[in-house]
Amino acid sequence: MGQIKIFTDSTSDLPPDLIAKYSIGVIPLYVVFNDQNFRDGIDLSPPELYSKVTQTGKLPKTAAPSPADFISAFSPYVEAGDQIIYISLSSELSSTYQNAIIASGEFPEGSVHVFDSLNLSTGIGIQVLKAAKAAESGQSADQILSLLEKIRPNVDTEFVIDSLEYLYKGGRCSGMQNLVGSLLKIRPVIKVLQGKMTPAYKVRGSRDKALDQMVNNALSNMDKMDKDTLFVVHTLAEQDAIAMSQLIKERTGVREVLLSDAGCVICSHCGPKTIGIIYITEE
């Protein structure tokens, strides 16, 4: 009898030990510098990405896996009789989900289930982790998909962007906004709402002030926070992430506060020293 194999993509930013523990399949997106394609997390690391941006003064582009990439990854498991649940990067942010849907049509009906996380980074990862634990406990594909439908709208994903430079270079804010924001030391805070990156508010002043605000926002949800798992995800901000995770664990009583490094695709859009807090609220 086949098993349920959980797949996700590289933007889920799950720590390698969790990927190994639950045998999660990871399909990489692509980071493109000029005519060179790099597989996220395989051919290129965030420090290497930042070095290339510094050298060239330009941001890379990012690209979804092709339907052929998905077919290649899924085929061995389907042939072995397994059922696949693939949890994707938000369909509002990438064609990754649509390409997975196209690929799923090449397999027998019901063998590949594609689920839109409507999230990014460990906002995907926290859903993947719930699915992997449910699969390990023996739940069916229908039960796992029902669980994902339930928790998806309750994933709270919030990031502090340290600099407007990457948003500016990526065409997500104007040159004047970048100049004014830099002069006034404005730190934008991004939330994921209905699958999209949405500016939630701006904090004027020090980085510490912005991080404190984000932590306080999470603590304000303490009473309705799922106490199983919370992620603190970062890129080149390990000390801040450790301090925040320790404080949150002490104050909330969450059983697992997990640190995660953002991958190259997320770094391409947010830049260094970005840090986020992700958790699930209970209904």
Results as ranks from 00 to 15, higher is better:
S72K: 15
K21F: 05
L29I: 11
L145V: 04
G271F: 13
T281W: 08
L183E: 04
V254N: 01
P65N: 03
V265S: 12
V53C: 09
K169F: 11
L59S: 03
T157N: 01
L193V: 15
L147N: 06
Y30M: 03
I275F: 04
G205W: 06
P28G: 00
S137Y: 12
V31W: 06
T274H: 08
S90C: 10
Q3A: 15
S95L: 14
R172M: 14
K273I: 05
F33W: 06
A243H: 03
T252V: 01
G57I: 13
A80M: 10
I277E: 00
P188H: 10
L59D: 01
Y279T: 00
S206K: 14
C264Y: 01
I266G: 01
F7S: 00
T157D: 01
P272I: 13
L236S: 07
K191L: 10
N216C: 07
V192C: 11
R251L: 00
G271S: 12
L29S: 14
S88K: 09
A210D: 07
D17T: 13
G125N: 01
I280L: 04
L14A: 02
A68K: 02
L118V: 05
Y201R: 14
E149Q: 14
D208F: 07
I278E: 00
T56V: 08
D240R: 10
L183A: 14
K191C: 08
S88R: 14
L129P: 00
V180P: 06
V112Q: 05
V180E: 03
P65D: 02
T54A: 14
S91C: 10
F33N: 05
N217L: 11
Q127W: 02
I4W: 13
I6C: 12
F231L: 11
V155M: 05
E256H: 03
Y22S: 00
D13N: 06
S12Q: 07
D240F: 12
Q36A: 15
S163Y: 10
D240T: 06
Y97P: 10
K61S: 09
T11W: 13
L230M: 05
E238C: 05
L129A: 01
K130W: 04
I71P: 01
S117P: 08
G195C: 07
D35H: 15
K58T: 08
V265G: 11
Q3F: 06
Y166H: 12
A132K: 04
E250M: 04
D17L: 14
